[in-house]
């Protein structure tokens, strides 16, 4: 594609993104906001692909637009009226709970505050753009990207993004799995899962019966291919979770998660647990934490990613269920 065509595409994408973002944020109805947000995520996927970030594009499609969208849609679906209610109304219920502090919700109604904050945001936008243009036009040294490619051979994988995620900056990824675990434990502490959906009719069942195996196959492929091409544990885990979400929507019970509490705990913990175990094993072998021997690195990374995929998928499905699984079987609502 020549430069003019590319420019045309860029302008089109940017305009679509900006107007979708604006429409998402200014929609008066929460449901409309959610749908626009999903559309925004899908267009964003194109932009990432255009900027040569296919790993991110995959993740955005599966997690950013896909699962976040499903979570948000489920939230408006189950509380259509309340989800729309403002925080101001909610705090109104707490009139007996006397708060000495000035409530920011009261302030928000004032026009002056609205305008001050808007002007502040405009100013911030200018400052951001100014600083960013300064940064982009200054000739920054490319040392980090160079040292990534210089060390790629020792990392055990040939996809540089996977190398950064699971080798050079593996510690970030370990903590990120801990973040996922924290979120799901917080969700467990808060509530039980929602009641299920109606059992699906024949058409939907037909779709499910070939879509779910296809998604599982695709997850396995994404996991394996992540070593040398776009893909990896997060995209694969999100794809598996999507299969779970579809099963859930079709009214299937248990959606592939174990019923026993201790098996479920193992599935949730295995991602961060195995990662940590590999790291500590290196320590026991007299190497630094998470310093894989180059000959083993490829296998260890695949092992870690497989465990991570399982935990990620389980976490995302449980987030969609909205709480710890009930002991009783689902009754449809």
């Amino acid at each position: 594609m020549n430069a003019t065509n590319m420019l045309f595409l860029d302008i089109l994408l940017v305009i679509a993104l900006l107007s979708l973002a604006w429409a998402t944020l200014t929609a008066t109805d929460a449901r409309r906001s959610v749908i626009l947000f999903i559309a925004f995520g899908l267009v964003l996927t194109l932009a990432w692909a255009r900027l040569l970030a296919p790993d991110v594009a995959l993740a955005e499609a599966a997690i950013g637009a896909g699962l976040s969208g499903a979570l948000l849609l489920a939230a408006v679906q189950h509380h259509p009226r309340r989800a729309l209610s403002s925080e101001r109304q909610n705090t109104g219920k707490l009139a007996n709970e006397k708060q000495n502090d000035s409530n920011p919700a009261d302030l928000k109604s004032s026009v002056a505050i609205r305008w001050t904050l808007t002007l502040f945001c405009i100013a911030l936008a200018f400052v951001l753009i100014w600083a960013l243009l300064q940064a982009l036009s200054s000739e920054t040294s490319d040392t980090l990207a160079q040292s990534v490619s210089a060390n790629l051979a020792n990392s055990g994988v040939s996809n540089p993004v996977t190398a950064v995620l699971l080798n050079f900056r593996a510690y970030d990824t370990l903590l990120e799995l801990a973040v996922l675990l924290t979120a799901v434990l917080g969700i467990f502490a808060l509530s039980e899962q929602r009641t299920g959906y109606l059992p699906a009719g024949p058409v939907f069942n037909g779709l499910v019966s070939w879509l779910v195996p296809a998604l599982i196959l695709m997850a396995g492929y994404l996991l394996w291919v992540g070593a040398h091409a776009p893909g990896g544990a997060f995209q694969a885990g999100a794809t598996l979770a999507a299969a779970g979400v579809i099963l859930r929507l079709a009214g299937k019970r248990n959606i592939g998660l174990p019923v026993s509490k201790s098996y479920l705990n193992i599935i949730l913990v295995i991602g961060s647990g195995l990662f940590l175990l590999v790291g500590l094993t290196m320590l026991a072998l007299g190497r630094p934490f998470l310093d894989y021997p180059p000959a083993m690195a490829g296998y260890l990374i695949l092992l870690i990613e497989t465990a991570a995929m399982i935990s990620i998928a389980a976490t995302l499905i449980l987030a969609f269920l909205g709480g710890r699984p009930r002991n009783r079987e689902d009754r449809s609502c």
Partner: peptide, 12 residues
């Protein structure tokens, strides 16, 4: 990639 996963955790 890390940021996207953290964001979905927080959203959930």
């Amino acid at each position: 990639l890390t940021g996207i996963v953290v964001a979905v955790s927080a959203t959930a």
